[in-house]
Nucleic acid binder design. Structure first.
Lengths: 331, 331
DNA sequence: ATATGCCCTGAAATTGTTTTCAGGCACAGG
DNA sequence: CCTGTGCCTGAAAACAATTTCAGGGCATAT
């Protein structure tokens, strides 16, 4: 069918071993041979079958990034960080999506077990901590962006508790006391942590926690809109709203704009993620920025380290976040 | 190192051939053997090495989708269409990004040449038509979303000329005569086609083409903002603006909103792509919707057909688009 | 009793590459 | 002239699976 190393060897009048040496740029091969082989390769239009190579070498130099869907443009910087770092070490990054299905996530991890890739990174896993811990013990598996409580696997993330706390503290320092929270019923650990930060900030400032100020929805913008409408129809309206994602915050502001609420004065808004639209949408949204590129970079570095290590590093690395202050907090 | 089929065979007291038969659910194997093998597999925690299997079978059942970056959330529906269709036929879809670098695009195509995947789909290629035509002649390669003039390769897209024309015709039918165009200097074929549609619509309606009404920028929202500002500072202002992407349109409307222009009355806006934000942003944007899911579905179906065919199908399939009419055209 | 057919099994070939090992050759030093 | 050294080379093993082929065992038919 396809042209193989054997055909090249035959055409160049050398052994397949010599062709292989040329392909891999080994030093111990004569110039004549190199010339002849390269000539044959060109004429035949040969390109090596990596299945053979990978099998023999037991490595593919490929890493799989498993994400929920390509919808969240938010992942894109993380992926870039992963790719650039991987490439500099001679690896390629492939992406696959789970569509929020834990079974499909497991199916994709099959690529790791079956040696189709050398390592895998989960960005927002759907599987539980126990399962992942077990898998990570025997395979080159890491997590990024999301940590999992009690999960013994290499993790790179930010401190979402502290980040939520910082955002809410900022609102409190602006003199706000009735702070609404818009979050999701879907309990990703990061959502849980951000909510925890919200509560800690209130507590440390002696503000009583009021459950009616917390709206649980989905993660679409329209859910943010509904959340804002609900919070604003309370007898005692909030004077600030913290949303656990920019998407929710933007949805929320849509209601506020429609209702004629003065954003940044009457009610302050704080988002999370610093997505592209947070500074396209008017008014510009104050938000928490994570070091996306750096998280991608670090997780790949550590993952590749682990591939060569005898005992894998299963630490959790938390990178620093920062507050981006814009119009919605009156800045 | 790892546990292989040999270990399983030994543990189950059968030959590796029998283990292989069990793994592949062949009928001609006794129940006792099946039992013993499955038991051994479980005890050893064995999972087959696909490199061996793929090499022997000369197929990986994997398809590579090559995109520019995961930033354009716009791709996500296409990918979903690809994945769902592929999965139903027993294939997995992997994604890789070129970061707009034609060299890297070629590097990624190496996965196709080296038999690491069974087929590849380019979504918005950076390579030229000639190169792609040659590659497609010898490998299982297709294009989706973007066509390339004179490229002899399986392509699934929409008719961007007609779509641009439809959008502009709609504006004309609303009584508009001075229609601005916001586009990009980066000449993707789809941009060229949409601009062509714009000109054809004008021509067919006897409206002279006015170059000062065309703004060439990048594809960021801020470029749309600049474009709108420039067009609105003309002596003879436009009464409608067609942007070749929603992103540009949203950027443009940001200027209009800030300048107090009555969107949907004074100036109509028409976008392209129907991205998520086009109905989050207020006012809601009228836009052209492409059948993303269907394009993804069709390209995979045709690509898989091509894998089994003796002579590959190199046709271009154009799927129907539709106009989504919202507030920005006064609907 | 022998032949026929079916079910199940394992040895060995096969897939395309890398790597090991042994040896051929030339050249320098004794 | 002989030996050691270094460079280059090819045959064959290895990687982990699938598939082919031949045959053993058993039941049924003749």
């Amino acid at each position: 069918m396809s042209v193989t190393i054997k055909d090249v060897a035959h055409k160049a009048n050398v052994s397949i071993a010599t062709v292989s040496r040329v392909l891999n740029h080994k030093s111990n091969v004569s110039e004549d041979a190199v010339e002849a082989v390269n000539q044959a390769i060109k004429e035949l239009g040969y390109s090596p079958n990596f299945l053979g190579r990978d099998l023999r070498k037991s490595e593919t130099r490929r890493i799989l990034a498993i994400i929920a869907s390509t919808e969240q443009s938010f992942y894109s910087e993380v992926i870039r960080g992963m790719e650039e770092t991987a490439m500099s070490k001679g690896y390629d990054v492939l992406i696959a999506t789970t569509r929020d299905d834990p079974n499909h996530e497991m199916h994709l991890l099959g690529m790791l077990f079956s040696h189709s890739v050398d390592g895998a990174v989960l960005l927002g896993p759907k599987l539980d901590a126990k399962t992942i811990s077990e898998l990570a013990a025997n395979h080159n598996l890491a997590m990024c962006l999301e940590r999992l409580d009690g999960c013994k696997a290499l993790t790179v993330t930010i401190n979402n508790v502290q980040a939520g706390k910082d955002a809410v503290n900022y609102l409190i320092n602006k003199g706000r006391r009735r702070i609404g929270l818009i979050t999701t019923t879907q309990r990703a650990q990061s959502s849980v942590d951000r909510e925890l930060g919200y509560r800690q900030a209130l507590e440390e400032n002696g503000i009583p926690y009021d459950p009616s100020l917390v709206y649980y929805g989905t993660y679409g913008a329209d859910s943010g809109t509904r959340g804002c409408r609900e919070l604003m129809s309370l007898e005692k309206k909030p004077d600030a709203i913290f949303a656990i994602s920019d998407m929710l915050a933007i949805g929320a502001m849509n209601h506020a704009l429609a209702a004629g609420i003065k954003i940044g004065k009457e009610v302050l808004f704080f988002g999370f993620d610093d997505i592209q639209y947070s500074h396209i949408f008017i008014p510009h949204l104050s938000t928490v920025r994570q070091p996306c590129f750096m998280q991608g970079k670090l997780v790949i570095e550590k993952l590749i380290d682990n591939m060569r290590a005898e005992t894998p590093d299963t630490s959790t690395y938390m990178l620093p976040h920062s507050l981006i202050l814009r119009e919605t907090t009156g800045d």
